[in-house]
């Protein structure tokens, strides 16, 4: 299932599929380690910002960024929709 990082639950793993936004923003994320194909884990959710782990590094992402990164998460035995 594909969803944005903002919709992930705590502890969930996902593989980055696409990132929406301008070139500058996408490049900035890539430089910090978030590139398509990379796996990330959601470590913490706050009132908007989230923390993800990617390439051994924990990154804090603002709400807007979290909403623009889309990941493919594994369905663990739940009903598909």
């Amino acid at each position: 299932m594909i969803k944005s990082v903002a919709e992930m639950t705590k502890g969930e793993k996902g593989k980055v599929i696409t990132i929406h936004g301008g070139k500058g923003k996408i490049l900035r994320l890539a430089e910090m380690g978030i590139t398509p194909g990379e796996e990330l884990i959601l470590i913490q959710k706050s009132l908007g910002p989230v923390i993800v782990r990617v390439k051994d590094v924990n990154l804090a992402l603002g709400k807007g960024l979290a909403e623009s990164i889309f990941v493919e998460v594994e369905e663990n035995g739940k009903n598909q929709n």
Partner: peptide
């Protein structure tokens, strides 16, 4: 503009 939070912890 206010760049969104992107910071290493």
């Amino acid at each position: 503009s206010l760049t969104p939070l992107l910071m290493e912890l």
